[in-house]
Design a protein around this nucleic acid. Structure first.
Lengths: 383, 383
DNA sequence: ACGTTCCCGTAAACCGGTTTGCTAAACCGT
DNA sequence: ACGGTTTAGCAAACCGGTTTACGGGAACGT
């Protein structure tokens, strides 16, 4: 697959014997210099070279200077892999996701989260690596990954990989998914945020809702009460129940958390006869999709239809109309995850809870308004 | 910083001497098993264990089975770092960017590109690692990175790190930035795309343009003819020149390639007295920002103002109005970059060009229309 | 002059795998 | 029964660093 790291630039012609010799020469000329080369050239031991870079105070200042000079001359650069092996530390934190990387990168929510991780990681001098299913197997990917800590996002408690990670002894933190109650985790108060969103709509007179939820990565988890869709749905239903409304199961439609997912979900619900006055979307991406689908059906937002999202992505300010949504601190979650995983080794202070829950709050923008007068009671077909 | 990978779960109380002994025990119980452990337990050599996993045909089938059983029982998992060192291969490809990771992840263009990289990398069994300035130094980050290949995106030819990468002997490919003409690179035909965009507007009767360009990472590179902004600007100007129009320098405003950048750029230009009938934005993100800024100023798009973007991001379909933009194959660029870097070692076929240029084309959507009648000649102030 | 301490630097073990000879036994044909 | 070829597995070198234990000499105190 990959060619060897050091190689000859030009293929010498001539007899094999000669060419071998030439290659050896070129090889030597082009080979990355090692610590042994530097030691030899500087007339010191390998240890001294190592000290010169890592613990200069253990050596006399002029020896350090000499070694560094020689090293610079040889363009020496310690092999990061060898260093990792020797110190048993990779200086890398991994972001683990059950979805493939291409769907991950297409998701702005994830981008903002990763931005938070990157900020904190950079501050701590850590590199960031993504761990996602390799040839369909997340377990294999975890085995391959050389990281000091794992940030697992959206990994349902049903995933067996959680056990694998636990056993591996690598510090980890779960994001957006509870598992054991004392397990390190980053959460947000989904239920309260969802409730606020629905209560806002109820206050505007809405009584007929469509919920657009996030489908779980593994088919089985949809019914799981800890799954994010279940948590948010509970919040929506609680607010609706306050005015004696029940959100029926056929008013809940699931799809992938993307704009396309939102479009399809809304069209599907519409085709099934749903005529809501308000949409409760569990992600901003899906809400944007719903906005688009509604427009395609000739509905004006917010005059004919109100839409509330979830996440408060950067783009939520730039949609037309600007999106009313539930704010959650996407970047902060990423930063805090790094912090949690960094001292996730021998738990510094066992009294301090390893879980961190962030608050959510509603941000009212332009995509919600009072229920259209004609639609106050009877649903009618207007497109 | 990071705690050692294997650690005792509970801190034993009592005298230090006793606690030490206990820790040693727990340590041993919890330590990840190594190839030596497996070899001992199975009564074979380390080599045999290695063969059992990597070259099973070198061993008898029942020995392989026995070793694998023992390994499974011990929950053995070869240390990826040790394996990397021994094979001198990391099975990782790095995406290098001169900007910090947090700005990178916030940029949807980059997300789509990374998605392409991820797709091809996953197919090849490669992990993806991001390389971005560490404590302000890109050179340091490159040194730290353990990758088999580097995909450098948006790295201007002026960056000294290119030289560093070249010297390191690691295969690499440059994206969106030419350097030496025979150097592996992924490019798009910026000039033709930009020209098509401007020609489209010219055809609609527009004569008064505002160009919103991408500011370079390092201040000095703005004037560089190879910088993406320069390339696209040439295209714009060529189309304008066809009808005898010159785009003056004060009609070109630069900013970061983000929505905020687009908003600021448009407002700045407006405040400076620019009253264009059409905006040529060099990125969709900036175009979306311009859309927003225009709306804030009371301009209707496309009735009062036409806007053309560049990139054809997924979101371009979902803006209001849907964005007319220059399409470039963002994901494909990522996939091709991986392919180029994978056989970037001893160049397989020196005749085959290492550079790959993709075509671009205009996608007309809803954000462009014929020039408003009142504005055909004289610019007037309408907000 | 004689320990004692401190300062520099070295040798060697180690991290956990892979890979290269090499050997001993099994197999083979005659 | 015997040389020649496979086959199965081992020992040891190696990848390129870090880290520990130790030794020699200079400085120091008395």
């Amino acid at each position: 697959m990959f060619a060897a790291r050091s190689y000859t630039v030009a293929r010498p012609l001539g007899s094999e014997r000669i060419s071998e010799a030439l290659e050896a020469l070129v090889e030597q000329a082009t080979r990355r210099s090692t610590i042994a080369d530097v030691a030899r050239a500087a007339g010191v031991s390998k240890a001294a070279v190592s000290f010169a870079f890592n613990t200069p105070e253990r050596l006399s200042t002029d020896t350090v200077a000499r070694i560094r000079d020689v090293a610079a001359g040889l363009d020496y650069r310690p092999d990061p892999v060898a260093r990792m092996l020797a110190q048993r530390r990779t200086w890398t934190v991994g972001i683990l996701t059950p979805q493939a990387l291409d769907v991950i990168f297409a998701n702005p929510y994830f981008g903002e989260f990763a931005a938070g991780v990157a900020t904190a990681a950079e501050a701590a001098g850590l590199a960031v690596q993504f761990i996602s299913p390799l040839h369909g197997s997340l377990a294999r990917a975890v085995d391959r990954a050389s990281v000091d800590g794992i940030i697992a996002v959206g990994l349902g408690a049903d995933h067996p990989e959680i056990g694998q990670i636990r056993r591996s002894g690598i510090p980890y933190v779960l994001v957006d998914s509870t598992a054991l109650p004392d397990e390190p985790a980053i959460l947000v108060d989904d239920e309260t945020g969802a409730r606020a969103a629905a209560a806002h709509l109820v206050g505007l007179g809405h009584r007929s809702f469509l919920v657009i939820g996030i489908e779980p990565p593994s088919a089985g988890a949809a019914a799981e009460p800890a799954w994010v869709t279940s948590r948010r749905l509970r919040g929506y239903r609680a607010a609706a129940a306050d005015v004696g409304i029940a959100i029926q199961d056929d008013a809940v439609v699931l799809g992938p958390a993307s704009m396309e997912g939102g479009i399809e979900a809304f069209h599907k619900a519409w085709a099934a006869g749903q005529r809501p006055t308000a949409v409760l979307a569990m992600s901003d991406a899906m809400a944007i999709g719903a906005l688009r689908a509604a427009r395609e059906l000739g509905l004006r937002v917010p005059a004919d239809l109100s839409v509330v999202g979830f996440d408060d992505l950067d783009v939520a300010q730039y949609t037309d109309p600007p999106l009313t949504t539930v704010h959650q601190p996407n970047r902060q979650k990423g930063e805090e995850a790094v912090r949690l995983v960094i001292d996730g080794g021998p738990r510094r202070n066992p009294l301090e809870p390893a879980q961190h829950q962030f608050a959510t709050h509603l941000v009212v923008r332009g995509s919600t308004a009072v229920v259209p007068p004609l639609r106050q009671e009877v649903p009618d077909d207007k497109a």
